[in-house]
């Protein structure tokens, strides 16, 4: 494997999480303010993505998760502040250079009608290709490795249209893998998948992290799955970070309340021994919950 696993030092980093992690971070957001046209979505946010770990960004709908991910991938120019990749301001770097270090899978990529799996995955090689280097042997190796890693090799000559949702998501991840970047940003890769396929995709992400040492940032909807698979969770609300750290340290009823406006109980996940958030809801509350004050909740 191309990527060296550097787990040991990160285990170390995680053990003294209460101090900010040392500079082991290639991708940093420095007081970025993000927005579209008139309204601000993310306000003066600081974030360091720990190297070699899985970072999950969680939060309610429209809290700025995807916007933040876009800014980290240079797709969005911050209104103020900056994103720094390997010590350089990402906006100053050529697009192609960014694409060689950082891969991005958007929420809704579009597969051209009739494209085959292998041709789609091959497009992940774009930043490594030139006018007269359209299909080198290293391109071929990378595509093969990406197909193998995602177990999509036997789908290679099928068209993407005829695949199931779970298979298609794996193919898209394969395309991002073929890009051979150590940093991988995934925007809600499990949305629209049933629970088995969600686990499938997250297991894949976990393997990519463990076996290949890739740094992965993933936007997730499911709080419990985020706790299970991520080393580091970043909880956003209204464009600000409410909590950030190892799931066991930051996910508690108070955090869940302040992020999602939800009363819950947090117990130990019997399988993974990570926090498991059990929502309460008014139907089962003992004593009954006071009526939700909308202002406070959202």
């Amino acid at each position: 494997m191309r990527f060296s696993a550097r787990r040991d030092e990160h285990e170390h980093v995680r053990s003294d999480h209460d101090r900010p992690a040392p500079a082991a971070s290639r991708l940093i957001a420095e007081s970025v303010t993000l927005g579209y046209d008139d309204h601000t979505v993310v306000n003066s946010l600081d974030l360091e993505i720990p190297d070699g770990e899985i970072t999950a960004i969680i939060g309610p709908n429209a809290c700025g998760k995807s916007t933040l991910l876009k800014a980290l991938a240079r797709l969005l120019v911050p209104n103020s502040g900056q994103v720094v990749l390997d010590g350089e301001k990402i906006q100053r770097m050529p697009t192609k250079e960014v694409a060689r270090r950082l891969g991005l899978l958007p929420q809704t990529p579009i597969a051209p009608e009739g494209i085959t799996v292998v041709d789609l995955v091959a497009r992940g090689r774009t930043p490594h290709q030139k006018l007269f280097q359209q299909w080198s042997e290293s391109d071929e190796c990378a595509v093969r490795a990406a197909l193998d890693a995602t177990s999509t090799g036997e789908l290679a000559d099928r068209t993407v249209d005829e695949l199931s949702g779970g298979q298609r998501q794996r193919v898209w991840i394969a395309m991002a893998l073929a890009q051979e970047t150590e940093l991988l940003l995934l925007d809600e890769p499990t949305t629209f998948l049933d629970i088995a396929h969600q686990i499938d995709v997250l297991d894949l992400i976990d393997r990519l992290n463990r076996e290949q040492g890739r740094t992965i940032v993933v936007v997730l909807h499911d709080l419990n799955l985020a706790c299970r698979y991520a080393h580091h969770v970043v909880a956003l609300r209204d464009g600000s970070i409410v909590a950030s750290g190892a799931p066991a340290d930051v996910i508690d009823p108070d955090t869940v309340r302040s992020v999602f406006g939800l009363e819950s109980m947090v117990i130990d996940d019997p399988i993974s021994h990570t926090p498991l958030v059990v929502p309460i809801g008014s139907r089962h509350a003992q004593p009954p919950l006071p009526p939700v004050e909308l202002d406070e909740a959202r």
Partner: peptide, 22 residues
């Protein structure tokens, strides 16, 4: 020459940008 970029844009603007297309 631009066919390459056109093919990448076909995957959606964000995906194309992620692949290094300006």
């Amino acid at each position: 020459l631009m066919q390459r970029n056109l093919d990448r844009l076909d995957l959606g603007d964000d995906t194309a940008a992620g692949l290094g297309v300006d």
